[in-house]
Design a protein around this nucleic acid. Structure first.
Lengths: 300, 300
DNA sequence: CCTCTAATACTCGAAAAGAGCATAAATAAT
DNA sequence: ATTATTTATGCTCTTTTCGAGTATTAGAGG
């Protein structure tokens, strides 16, 4: 009865910057429709990314499926979209109109590595203040954006995007609702490039998933080069989480998990004292399953 | 180009038993196709469950979407299936051929509340032993089923199902591959009722999701009655996790999170000393967002 | 009264998490 | 050459959290 779309959020981290793969001159995510020739959904996705960007893919996982009725041109031709999250290393070659962008280009309020972005205090908080005319709204705004003494929670990427969407602070809302009057009244919008359709929402979903996942699974495997220093690894995690980590504790954590081993070589281009180079231990694959429990279990 | 199916894993916990909603005399999950009249996928799902079982639904979340090429009758009419997980309280009324079953009926090796099920030592372990002719296979079997000193990991529900599927120990495999010779050679199969198509795999996916989720989000809201004792709450969590918890620590955990408050009344039908009754605090909704971080963050 | 069962209150020790201090080994600047 | 700067790395210290166990309390039923 309808078409099925495949949409890819492909992430790499290059020089401490979190990057996503885009097409159409940075205005859309790699995507295409699921076709009879595709063996599986994931195979179809890989083929589209390959065709549009020539970027080799490693790890890929499913994100979310949606079918909002206002997506297609008319309500009968429903489009179902299946989105995926993928991790790779940035390859230099890409297709036409394809490229890599920092994801903070699209969601600039998400980068808290140096400090909370000025955009939050200057633009977002005041706008939310006027929107928040009930206690529930005030609480929601404070929690999602870490206002009024609430701590910043980097995982709430999607909730933040949706709140901005509801309040009309991101332009996607107006594009959709003012199609008949494209030159309607002015709305205050935020910095941050937008994307076609709901691709920016999908990006937010992908980032949220990755930020959550990195806390209980060592998903940085695919993002790192063959060998790396611990600081580089830390910078990769910081790029994803959008906040700084405590160096010594990060190291303790990493080696308590036995994820890496020394290569023996040193990196001498790091400015200060040369750092040991590490690589991931191959055997980790099997052990990855041993995830952490949190329930007060009974022994034996 | 194809049809989209909606499939529901609806969970309740009744008297300490984890239950799922079924149709077709316990051989299938509630399901139906996504139709033009449905506003969203989730709305479509709710409508099918309502139609087939008359069970009111509360919380619902998306599970997974798949489109294996060997699902439909021919390869051109691809079926895309979107599965959902829902939580409710078991209502007495259900539709025709609909009913509630313990999920351990379908996956009997998953219940470790009293002890590791005999079926593992008696049937599964020996069969896996002969299958595991390489170190990698041995490790996989040991990790997923907690053999050879490995701890039981209740989250690996899907991995266990898939391992049994690969080794041919669950009948779905043979039904699919021996359709031309229904009376083919005997395969050793396990106890555990099977379901139509890949519904049992979807059930496993749902259980895995729930077992993972309950560790970082208080998802038992929808499963409990208005007021309950802490032991009842513990039994509910145990039913889901498939293992026993340490009572005192469970209580400490619950009240450190401020999830519940005393109603003032007591339950006196519990056998021993009467227990206080609790209810969930309504305000928790907003605070649920404050999930736990695990990274070694830097303060301020 | 005694016994059974369950509820509830504490205690204890081990491990993990959060933070800071100190020292070492390089390069860049004076 | 000396000093400042940058990064690496080793250790300590404190606070929480987690897993487990002990002790006490309050009912029901003989």
């Amino acid at each position: 009865m309808g078409v099925t779309d495949l949409i890819a959020v492909i992430v790499a981290v290059t020089a401490g910057s979190p990057r996503i793969l885009t097409i159409a001159n940075a205005t859309a995510l790699p995507s295409g429709s699921f076709e009879p020739g595709h063996r599986t959904l994931q195979a179809g996705l890989r083929s589209w990314v390959q065709r549009q960007t020539h970027q080799p893919l490693g790890y890929v996982e499913q994100l979310y499926t949606f079918a909002d009725s206002d997506r297609g041109p008319d309500a009968t031709a429903r489009v179902i979209s299946v989105s995926y999250l993928g991790l790779t290393r940035e390859a230099p070659v890409t297709g036409q109109d394809a490229g890599w962008q920092s994801w903070y280009t699209y969601l600039p309020w998400e980068d808290h590595r140096t400090a909370p972005p000025a955009i939050i205090a200057d633009l977002i908080a005041p706008q939310l203040e006027t929107w928040a005319n009930t206690p529930a709204r005030r609480a929601r705004a404070a929690i999602t954006f870490g206002l009024h003494g609430h701590a910043w929670n980097e995982e709430l990427v999607l909730q933040r995007y949706e709140l901005l969407y509801e309040t009309g602070l991101v332009p996607e809302r107006h594009r959709r609702h003012t199609e008949t009057s494209p030159q309607g009244r002015e709305h205050p919008t935020l910095p941050g490039a937008f994307m076609a359709l709901d691709h920016r929402r999908i990006l937010a979903t992908g980032i949220a998933r990755l930020r959550t996942k990195i806390k209980y699974r060592p998903v940085f495997f695919e993002l790192m080069p063959e060998s790396f220093t611990l600081l580089q690894l830390q910078h990769t995690v910081e790029a994803i989480a959008g906040r700084r980590l405590h160096k010594q504790n990060f190291r303790r954590l990493i080696d308590s998990q036995n994820l890496v081993e020394e290569t023996g070589a040193m990196a001498c281009d790091t400015g200060g004292r040369p750092a040991k180079l590490f690589r991931f231990r191959g055997e980790v694959e099997a052990e990855r399953a041993i995830s952490g429990t949190k329930l007060p279990l009974l022994r034996n």
